[in-house]
């Protein structure tokens, strides 16, 4: 892959073997960030499909969606450079960073309030108020 990047980096100046180091480092950082984000997104999707319980599925989806989305958007911001597009992408990343954990918390709390108990084997889950009353 590095060889492919090097080949495509030097194809613009085919006569001299000059490598555009800024573009190369930007491309490598962006590729690494987007690849990590894709890994987290796919792992979270696999977790949602395979895990046995609603709360474990929520755990897989909520955490990996936040981190994977942020990593992919950061990779795209690195690709875009300092433009209007990167500012818009930054706003999208900010909203996702705020709203994704909030929505996950709301879904978990609503499910627990509605009486959906987690699978705990021989243990028993406490009530919503923590079993203090």
């Amino acid at each position: 892959m590095i060889g492919l990047i090097l080949a495509s980096a030097s194809e613009s100046q085919a006569v001299s073997l000059h490598v555009d180091w800024v573009a190369l480092i930007t491309a490598v950082a962006s590729v690494v960030s987007i690849s990590a984000g894709l890994f987290f997104v796919l792992a979270g999707t696999l977790g949602v499909l395979r895990l046995p319980d609603f709360y474990t599925r929520l755990h897989a989806a909520g955490m990996t969606d936040t981190l994977g989305a942020e990593l992919i958007l950061i990779g795209l911001i690195i690709q875009a450079g300092l433009t209007q597009m990167s500012l818009k992408l930054l706003i999208v990343a900010f909203f996702l960073f705020i709203t994704s954990p909030t929505a996950t918390h709301a879904v978990a709390h609503a499910a627990y309030k509605a009486g959906l108990k987690p699978k705990l084997g021989k243990y028993k889950a406490p009530d919503v108020d923590g079993g203090l009353k």
């Binding site: 997104v41 949602v48 609603f54 599925r57 989806a61 989305a69 958007l73 795209l76 996702l96 499910a111």
Partner: peptide, 19 residues
Amino acid sequence: YDRLLAVNSFGTKTILFLC
């Protein structure tokens, strides 16, 4: 709630795909 979680996650992935 499983369906709701899937819809929420699907929406996040839609945002990523558009970007």
